[in-house]
């Protein structure tokens, strides 16, 4: 029984990390239809910015978060302006272009900073565990869970309660008509892409104390992020959250019942089945395009 409770928490923790990584992608992929294969590299950049701030400037992870967000969002903005913007009408080419950008970013980090794994210290106040009976929860993981929920909420507000969000939704529904109404769709897309990249950066910053920080760390993460977005349904924030929770908990439970390797296989098989019966994910957005 203790094991199951602990494992449920582990699943929740995995889910929160998945959600953090997938949220940025859900916006970029879901809203703009850009399959951004460089997303994992944005996560990696976030981790490295955190590392640089901590080692060279002496700023801990928590105060570094806004700086990381802005830094990676800027990189995203440059990438969008320089490359992605030219390719909105050629979705297949964006795959290739963002894949290439990912490789370039990875190699730049490797050449500039070095290939070896970097050490980032977790925040002191969040070290240690909280114990409730047999349930032992790492404080840092609890923090990540709440933080990811907060980011989800902020993003949801941004999309539904602000003028920017309204414009974005308008552009998603019909770009040409929105432009007729005076919405500058180019600018909206640039900001959205930068926001998605910034979220990826924050995700990178949050996972560094748990994982190892290396130039290739994003490659595996982007796969998980795509799984979440696809299971959740394109463009649905709630869908992403539910999918992250589902995948996280399923991974945790399968890995305790079988083991991590087979657990991973079982989860992937489950996702294939789900896609077979719900090809548009759990929460498909009902918009006319």
């Amino acid at each position: 029984m203790d094991v199951i409770a602990n494992q449920l928490f582990a699943g929740l923790s995995m889910a929160s990390i998945l959600l953090m990584i997938a949220l940025g992608l859900a916006i970029i992929y879901g809203a703009m239809g850009v399959i951004n294969l460089a997303h994992g590299e944005f996560v990696m950049l976030g981790a490295y910015v955190t590392w640089a701030l901590q080692t060279h400037v002496g700023i801990g992870i928590l105060p570094a978060l806004p700086i990381v967000f802005i830094a990676v969002a800027l990189v995203g903005l440059i990438v969008e302006k320089a490359v992605v913007q030219k390719l909105y009408h050629r979705p297949l080419d964006t795959i290739l272009a963002t894949w290439g950008i990912g490789i370039i970013l990875q190699q730049l980090v490797r050449l500039g900073i070095g290939a070896e794994s970097r050490f980032v210290k977790g925040p002191e106040i969040l070290s240690g565990n909280t114990e409730i009976g047999p349930l032992i929860m790492s404080n840092y993981r609890i923090f990540v869970i709440f933080f990811s929920i907060a980011v989800l909420f902020v993003t949801w507000r941004l999309m539904t309660r602000t003028e920017f969000g309204m414009k974005l939704r308008a552009v998603i529904q019909n770009r040409d008509i929105s432009e007729c109404y005076g919405i500058e769709s180019k600018r909206i897309f640039s900001i959205t892409f930068a926001y998605g990249a910034g979220l990826a950066g924050i995700a990178g910053a949050l996972i560094t104390p748990l994982f190892s920080t290396i130039p290739t760390m994003g490659t595996g993460l982007v796969v998980d992020a795509f799984l979440v977005v696809i299971v959740g349904g394109l463009g649905s924030l709630v869908g992403s959250a539910v999918a992250a929770a589902l995948i996280g908990e399923a991974t945790a439970l399968f890995s305790i019942v079988i083991n991590d390797t087979l657990g991973r296989i079982a989860v992937l098989a489950g996702i294939i089945l789900l896609i077979r019966f719900r090809p548009r994910g759990l929460f498909p957005t009902e918009t006319r395009r």
Binding site: S255, N259, D260, T261
Partner: peptide, 20 residues
């Protein structure tokens, strides 16, 4: 006796099992 995939990075279930 447990094997995780190469590059595996979330060990929370392994750690729970160790605890148990």
């Amino acid at each position: 006796e447990e094997y995780v995939p190469l590059g595996h990075s979330d060990f929370s279930s392994v750690i729970n099992r160790i605890r148990a």
